[in-house]
Design a protein around this nucleic acid. Structure first.
Lengths: 351, 351
DNA sequence: TCACTTGCTGGAAGTGCTTCCACAATGTGA
DNA sequence: TCACATTGTGGAAGCACTTCCAGCAAGTGA
């Protein structure tokens, strides 16, 4: 039905091995024969069958992305960047969306045991030792993005430095009563960001107050608030309400350690009849598209670059470059918009 | 290295054909033998090799999604819905992001000629006759979502009815000077939505004014404004500015036929020192997440359902149910928020 | 009892490639 | 001139499955 390597071989009057060598740029073929074969390939519009190649080569030229779908824009941009990159390397991308690695069984079965993909990129999902060992024991290429495990390659961002920049900015604007809202306190990002916040406060001799730090922990019963390690809109809203209703002296600024939480927090602030930034200044973290549209001052993550490095690393691993464990922490920077009360750079504001 | 069907056959003391029949639920096997084989399969943790199965069966169990990546949330939600559905059918999803079908050559080569996928879902991308014929001639399963071609299966929404609802709502609020901003006027959605707008006006004997309708057409030189058939933030901004600076009597309301354009338009309105909804009421179209967060009154599209129907249809096609050409127009509904000046249902408001 | 069907089973053939091995046709140096 | 590399080539053997066909045993009806 569809044309095969045999059709090409027959028409070009050569053996199938020669055709294979011609289309795969093998050095063991004379230029003359190669040209002759490629000419026929073009005439017949021959295209090697992916499955057959995969079977023979033991490579699928497909990589899997494991994505928790709920966080919208961040993943769209990351996926776009990654898709573009791997496409240039001749790979295709299979997308698996899992909720907190719940369905990881299905994925592991499909992708690994069926040998459907050559490598895996995991986005923002916590990996436990058990998961990690499956990859390590099978010597299966994997790179984590915005996630961490001590035995796996990972690309993340300088959480601590970002939180430091955010807090530092608020301090420079004259704030001293600065609260912090974050996600699941056991998660690496939450911990690192808390450290950055503390360092900035300490540097300026501002007292650190326990009740100015709001977070989600494992005792949380509301499953909604646990989503995405506690970095979600609802948790931002709830934690901000909790802060405002706690009776503690009201802070004049709050560093919310994810934009999506900041949006929830801002909603809570407005509902209490308070003004942003006059009553409470807000700085987020992530720089998702919403942040730009809402004028949220935040910490920018170099999303595209993260994807870029991750792909590069994964390709290396897939090519057997079995280098040491690799970690890369990318730099962040502050993006000043409206919610912090700083006047510069209002051009991007929306409201 | 990895265990094959031969290992299972040997350990179960049966032939490889029998193992194949056992794992594929063939009726031509005795229950006793099947159980015995499946027991060994479990013991050895045997998993059939996807490529080998694919080669033998001439099926990959993979479908491709062709996505224009720029419109963020709409696609994330659609992808999630589709991924969930096809996963239930045992399929995996390869993601191709193309910009306006520019890279479609690469995709066609990879996915179709290499036989890497069993079917294709195309999101929101214009398909020309040439593209369509490639699929038709190869009898290759394809379903369009939020797009249309007379010879291909498509799932879209009732654009005309949605635009009617939006305009009708503004009329009911007492507006008579209602402008409309839309995308590329040659595109099907833009045309249908314009019709809906006209019908609503006509029904109430409101005069239709040419200079109240702003759109992008092929003469547009700025490529940014042409992105995504003109449905983009920049075009919304520019067209709104054009309207406000045109000297025509200022409208009291505007129906912007995509949310993302509405966001641009609202920016322009605010920059001119006008208030929403007091000076100009705004209604969008799409109900992307941003609309909810910004309190934008808009027309909701049943995104998940669209994905659901599309997958169902594609699976049918792939199973050879060669029914007639299929079109499905899903119903839309109005979501009232803040930007139209209507007071009900403010609970979702953000600002 | 014998012909004939029915139900399972084993394994060869086929899927479309890559890769290896053998071999022919050159070229090379003494 | 002869031994020995070197280069290019054809095609068998693989990859790990599905499917088909033949064969065997048991069942069926006259």
């Amino acid at each position: 039905m569809s044309i095969t390597i045999y059709d090409v071989a027959k028409k070009a009057k050569v053996g199938i091995g020669t055709v294979s060598r011609a289309i795969n740029d093998s050095p063991h073929i004379s230029p003359h024969t190669r040209d002759k074969v490629l000419q026929v390939v073009k005439e017949l519009k021959y295209q090697p069958h992916a499955m057959a190649q995969g079977l023979a080569r033991k490579k699928t030229k497909i990589i899997a992305c494991i994505v928790p779908f709920f966080t919208g824009y961040f993943f769209v941009e990351l996926l776009r960047s990654i898709q573009r990159d791997i496409s240039a390397y001749g790979y295709d991308l299979i997308l698996y969306s899992v909720d907190e690695m719940n369905k990881k069984e299905v994925f592991l079965k499909r992708a690994l045991r069926e040998k459907k993909v050559d490598g895996v990129l995991v986005f923002s999902l916590p990996i436990n030792d058990n998961d990690a060992n499956i990859f390590i024991n099978n010597n299966f290429p994997i790179v984590l993005i915005d996630s961490y495990h001590r035995d796996l390659d990972s690309i993340s961002i300088q959480n601590q430095q970002g939180a430091y920049l955010a807090t530092r900015h608020l301090i420079e604007l004259g704030h001293t009563r600065i609260a912090m809202i974050t996600g699941h306190i056991q998660s690496i990002p939450a911990q690192r960001r808390l450290e950055g916040y503390k360092i900035a406060l300490h540097e300026d001799d501002i007292e650190f107050k326990e009740n100015y730090v709001l977070y989600i922990d494992s005792s949380e019963v509301n499953a909604d608030l646990m989503l995405n390690d506690g970095f979600n809109e609802k948790s931002g809203y709830q934690l901000m309400l909790r802060l405002l209703e706690s009776g503690t002296e009201r802070p004049t600024a709050v560093f919310v350690s994810s934009d999506i939480q900041a949006i929830g927090a801002m909603k809570a602030i407005r509902e209490k009849g308070l003004s942003i930034p006059d009553d409470i200044a807000v700085v987020g973290f992530d720089d998702i598209e919403l942040a730009r549209l809402l004028g949220l001052t935040t910490i920018h993550q170099p999303i595209a670059e993260m994807g870029h490095y991750a792909v590069k690393r994964l390709i290396d691993r897939m090519n057997g470059h079995n280098a040491d464990h690799y970690e890369c922490d990318m730099e962040t920077h502050l993006v000043i918009r409206r919610t912090c009360g700083s006047i510069n750079n209002e051009s991007n504001d929306f409201f």
